[in-house]
């Protein structure tokens, strides 16, 4: 009786995992498939990767994505770490709402409100506007990771430093920062991943002339299914999965739901 229930539970959960992974595995598998159609396995090829690395539009898009992700992750890590420390040390309702709301509301709302904002400011839509938008939604993710790290920290260490006469800055620089560093790095990797993956907010804030990887993928799949998209998807997945696995090793709380 008990065993049968366990089998049923395992079967249902396995079906759930299959639902999560089969689609992604098919994308990866067909990126090596010697057929344009993405419908059945024909034979192994690296043709689509070769094509990818000679696709000028795709390379420009990749360059833009990396540049934006680099700037957005650096700035949002600085601001997000400050926000995380502030939320822990000086709890304020205003800050919590402003940090968490961009994560909680549907993305499209942030996209359209920033579109109005940038156009009214006469800021030409492009790399700068996209980076500014990405920073805004990455701050919250970094802040959450950093605050979780602080919450697990031994408070007596900072008190001892202060008792020994260290200034608040020195206490932060030599005690708190080294202790929360894994959280800060995890937050930076998350921010990089979120930025390089973002489609919706980028879609509204990039304007006509600027293309990032997700925007390039979007315009390709709107026309047709092509294995070149599978190839770029495979590489992008490898990159983000590596970053996230490193981040989750640095900050195990990433695994716990907020």
């Amino acid at each position: 009786m008990r065993r049968r229930r366990r089998v049923v539970l395992w079967a249902a959960a396995l079906a759930g995992y299959a639902f999560l992974y089969v689609p992604l595995i098919i994308v990866v598998a067909y990126s090596f498939n010697n057929s344009r159609l993405n419908a059945e396995w024909v034979g192994f090829t690296l043709e689509w990767y070769d094509k990818l690395f000679h696709d000028q539009d795709m390379l420009i898009a990749a360059g833009n994505s990396l540049a934006i992700a680099l700037v957005a992750s650096i700035v949002s890590t600085l601001l997000g770490t400050a926000a995380g420390v502030a939320m822990y040390r000086y709890p304020s309702r205003l800050l919590s709402v402003l940090v968490l709301a961009p994560i909680a509301i549907p993305e499209i709302l942030m996209g359209v409100s920033l579109l109005i904002f940038f156009v009214l400011l006469n800021l030409t839509l492009g790399l700068v506007s996209v980076a500014l938008a990405h920073i805004a939604f990455c701050i919250g993710f970094v802040a959450i990771v950093v605050r979780a790290r602080l919450a697990g920290m031994d408070e007596t260490l900072t008190e001892a430093a202060r008792d020994c006469g260290a200034s608040p800055w020195n206490t932060f620089r030599y005690i708190t920062l080294p202790l929360i560093m894994p959280g800060v790095i995890a937050g930076a990797l998350m921010a990089f991943t979120l930025s390089i993956d973002d489609f919706v907010i980028t879609f509204f804030t990039a304007g006509a002339g600027t293309v990032t990887l997700p925007l390039q993928i979007y315009s390709m799949i709107k026309i047709a299914v092509t294995p070149e998209v599978n190839a770029v998807s495979t590489l992008l997945m490898l990159l983000t999965l590596a970053l996230i696995i490193i981040a989750s090793k640095l900050s195990p709380t990433l695994l716990r739901s907020e």
Binding site: Y21, L24, I26, Y30, D197, I217, N230, S233, I245, L255
Partner: peptide, 20 residues
Amino acid sequence: LLVILPFWSNFLIRIYAWMI
């Protein structure tokens, strides 16, 4: 982790997978 990983792969790629 296995439940969370797909969430971290690109949103468009997950849509594209269903196109295939």
